[in-house]
Design a protein around this nucleic acid. Structure first.
Lengths: 202, 202
DNA sequence: CCTACCGATCGGTAGG
DNA sequence: CCTACCGATCGGTAGG
């Protein structure tokens, strides 16, 4: 699915500037001339490094999708409790967003401008990813760590609250990525965990 | 701020179709010809009823902003506990979204295509609205109903998780608006409320 | 990486 | 509400 291809330095710069513009104005409202101006070259010159405007969006979206998968993978295989695994997964997910908030903004808001077959690939990946979180939560329900009935609903709430971080997160804003992840995980897990468990522990 | 002007039947239809297209493709990627085709008239004919493409976006965004304010207003003035007020406010907020998920989608995703002075007005309103929620949460902290330190962080998590409902909510999907609102409020308030309080009640 | 340029499409207007 | 049309801008190509 992911084509391995060495990216030139210039290509990386194009994606970096495009990420900022797509975040600011959106993919459709950003023209190749806007991007070229930002890079201080002519619009036609961009096409020495890329094939189309959409190819840039493609690269950005799948690059960050890979990051999410890599972040999640290491947390799923451990043999700790569902509560601990979920906490680790949340922290890892948050870190991907706070490390690159602009990329994350494009990923979450502009993916719908992908065209086939990239669009279907993207949706398939997103689905797989969300299902991993769902399995983590269902595991917690089965082990009686979490006191909830509807795992699907819960995972939607969780991911929604996390995935909007890019909109307000400011690096050097007083909270580290780790702190934000810990805080979200605490609040969220507190909201779903068994009360008897709660009382036993405290 | 809100100009009162009686809208013609045709104007209302234009906004309805525009809402659907803006939700589906985004404001920038929707052309007036797309909209005209959808309405089975010529693009030029639209301009008998509207002045510009952006005016449509304006109407949609401020119409739903009014709905949010009206929904919140009635809950703030009561003399119940902060917990109860917050629950009522969450349910009312969710209802605005589930009543018109397409409008909500445009409101949350396309507002950035507003231009001045509408953009500043919009951001001011959104800020005021979020501050009302913050005050509700701060009140709960002051009354020792909620066990959290950072109200600003908490309100962001709350609104993020709610405001993405439009992306997955299906009318006739098994859950009523009231049930969704109750569920979110439960999970969320459970996650922030005082533990001693929790134990006392149960 | 540039100059020069393409056909298509954009939001919008004139005039009926 | 339509026909006819505007200048501007779009993504992208040819050729160097």
């Amino acid at each position: 699915m992911a084509v391995i291809r060495k990216k030139s330095e210039r290509r990386i710069q194009i994606e970096k500037h495009a990420t900022k513009l797509f975040e600011l104005r959106g993919f459709a409202a950003t023209s190749m001339r806007d991007l070229a101006t930002e890079m201080q070259i002519e619009a036609a010159s961009l096409y020495s490094h890329i094939h189309s405007k959409e190819e840039i969006l493609n690269s950005i979206c799948f690059k960050i999708a890979d990051k999410f998968f890599n972040a999640l993978e290491s947390t799923l295989t451990s043999d700790r409790s569902a509560t601990e695994k979920l906490e680790t997964a949340i922290i890892a997910h948050v870190k991907v967003i706070t490390d690159e908030p602009s990329e994350a903004a494009v990923f979450f808001s502009e993916w719908r401008h992908l065209t086939e077959p990239a669009l279907s690939d993207f949706l398939k990946m997103r689905n797989t990813y969300e299902r991993s979180f769902l399995q983590l939560i269902d595991e917690g329900i089965a082990k009686r760590e979490f006191d909830i009935l509807d795992g699907r609903f819960t995972v939607r709430m969780l991911l929604s609250s996390i995935n909007w971080i890019h909109a307000w997160y400011k690096p050097n804003g007083g909270m580290t990525s780790e702190e934000i992840g810990k805080k979200i995980a605490d609040m969220f897990i507190n909201g779903i965990k068994m009360k008897e468990y709660d009382v036993q522990v405290s």
